[in-house]
């Protein structure tokens, strides 16, 4: 039960991209198509799973003072593995994702999970956390990628959907479209999650938000 809860937390309640707003760079840069989004998500999930397992196993041996450099080295090792695997087996995806594969090293989700979760929890929990967070990230990238591909190119996973409906707005697959799509998806998420629990929105989230101090000023 507990394991299952850890797994689902990452996908919905604490979705790293849509809720915690971590790992924004790949979420905006590679999501021009749904396929690239999923590819990036799976690569990051692999690194997250590997680094969570290794860091969790070594958590009693890594001295507190040098833990961040140690974590980064472990993560960089797994990123190199992914880089070489992609180059060998999926060269076309590797070309599409470009420098964002090595940039998984500085993806804040992975370092954040290492620091918050894997360095304090036993291996089996860390595996579930890595899988859940990774799938949550993949899901977010898939959503953004689908929206951008549909509106920007009229296709979904390369299948043409809007032949006679409307002519695609190319801006959605250009850089401005990334910001635009993500902004609207986050607003929709806000709208959906606030629905019904409007009164306690600020008590449940510990992030800084623009609402803070607004109510006093208005009253």
């Amino acid at each position: 039960m507990n394991m299952l809860r850890i797994f689902t937390t990452g996908i919905i309640k604490e979705n790293p991209t849509l809720k915690l707003v971590l790992g924004m760079c790949p979420a905006l840069a590679v999501t021009t198509t749904a396929k690239n989004g999923v590819g990036m998500g799976i690569a990051a999930t692999f690194v997250l799973l590997g680094s969570n397992v290794v860091i969790s196993l070594l958590r009693k041996f890594i001295p507190g003072k040098v833990r961040i450099p140690a974590f980064i080295t472990i993560i960089a090792g797994f990123v190199t593995v992914v880089q070489l695997l992609l180059k060998a087996y999926l060269p076309s995806l590797d070309r599409e994702l470009g420098i964002f594969i090595p940039l998984i090293v500085v993806n804040c989700i992975i370092l954040a999970r290492a620091e918050i979760f894997a360095s304090n929890n036993p291996v089996h929990y860390s595996v579930m956390d890595g899988l859940g967070m990774g799938l949550g990230f993949t899901f977010a990238l898939f959503t953004i990628g689908s929206v951008r591909e549909f509106f920007g190119n009229g296709t979904w996973f390369g299948i043409t959907l809007t032949k006679n409906l409307f002519s695609p707005a190319i801006i959605m697959i250009l850089p401005p479209g990334g910001f635009l799509a993500f902004g609207f998806i986050m607003a929709i998420m806000n709208k959906l999650t606030n629905y019904g629990i409007r009164n306690k929105t600020c008590a449940t989230c510990d992030l800084e938000c623009a609402n803070a101090g607004k109510k006093e000023a208005a009253s």
Partner: peptide, 24 residues
């Protein structure tokens, strides 16, 4: 005065999109 759901990050992202269009 931004609609409730857009407050905070979403409206910032949309503003960023417009700045990005300018840079385009």
């Amino acid at each position: 005065n931004v609609p409730h759901a857009f407050r905070g990050l979403p409206i910032s992202l949309i503003a960023a999109a417009l700045v990005s269009v300018a840079f385009f």
